[in-house]
């Protein structure tokens, strides 16, 4: 009685591979990842695919479904026309390891270039005034005095911190996908990461030179493709990239500000 779905799945590695057809029964509410799992259970236990949460929270299951970048665990089968093959491929911007699993280690290398969070010295006035009620019963190291900031300040970076590192934005950005500038360009994911640190209410690091020179922010020409695919609906371009570009311009290209900085280095 169950309906059947026709899947065309990439099988192979980075050098060679083919599209293989499979047929699996469809259940109500089924997602593409379920169909891939059904193929593993029914036909091909060695089909490689990554997943963890099956609820859009871990960013493991990125793929291209009918040419569109998707989290396969959030991609409903009933969205696709019944009876027509659904084409499932690994994401294109990274080398295929096997089948649907790609080598995304480059992203981890880029991330490592970004200097980590650096806590501002918390002014005494910001510290918990009445530590007696909060911490007297609990042990408390002095290194962790309590900083304060508002929810509004938190909101701004919490948007960026929602990123689940699915790398779908990296996958669609033409600077990586078509121009393969992996050496000079960090990609939207890492602009989001830098923004989450630069706009952090407690951070005192400085990553503008890095984002300009090593992460190649200038290559981005604001096409907004990354924002469109982000499953976390992060406004990558408007809220992370453009403000970073403005900061870079202010710092490195605004002649008056530059002069002021030479004269009054602390201003």
């Amino acid at each position: 009685m169950a309906e059947e779905a026709i899947l065309h799945i990439y099988r192979g590695n980075n050098d060679k591979g083919e599209m293989v057809e499979y047929r699996v029964p469809v259940q109500p509410g089924m997602v593409v990842l379920d169909a891939v799992h059904a193929v593993q259970a029914m036909y091909s236990p060695d089909l490689a695919v990554r997943w963890n949460c099956k609820a859009g929270k871990c960013g493991s299951c990125s793929g291209e479904v009918n040419g569109k970048p998707r989290l396969m665990c959030m991609d409903r089968m009933d969205k696709y026309p019944a009876g027509e093959p659904i084409v499932i491929r690994p994401i294109k911007s990274f080398p295929v390891m096997k089948d649907l699993a790609t080598d995304v280690s480059w992203n981890y290398r880029v991330n490592k270039k970004i200097p980590p969070f650096q806590m501002k010295p918390v002014a005494t006035s910001l510290r918990d005034a009445d530590a007696k009620s909060a911490g007297s019963e609990s042990r408390r190291d002095s290194a962790t005095a309590e900083p304060r900031f508002s929810q509004e300040e938190a909101d701004r970076v919490q948007e960026f911190r929602k990123c689940i590192e699915c790398y779908l934005c990296q996958n669609v950005c033409h600077v990586l996908r078509d121009h393969e500038k992996h050496e000079e360009f960090g990609g939207p994911r890492f602009f989001v990461r830098v923004a989450s640190l630069e706009m952090h209410p407690l951070d005192c690091g400085d990553r503008l030179e890095l984002v300009k020179d090593q992460l190649g922010l200038g290559f981005c020409n604001i096409t907004r493709c990354c924002t469109e695919v982000c499953p976390e609906h992060i406004h990558i371009t408007d809220n992370a990239i453009i403000p970073l570009k403005e900061r870079v311009v202010d710092r490195f290209y605004d002649p008056i500000k530059k002069l002021l900085r030479i004269v009054f280095p602390k201003a």
Binding site: S138, D141, A143, F149, V157, Q158
Partner: peptide, 17 residues
């Protein structure tokens, strides 16, 4: 636990306020 939470904040975690 309270110190571990505060420590996480000092490493950059942004909890709701």
């Amino acid at each position: 636990a309270p110190d571990r939470v505060r420590e996480l904040e000092s490493w950059g975690a942004v909890f709701d306020r």
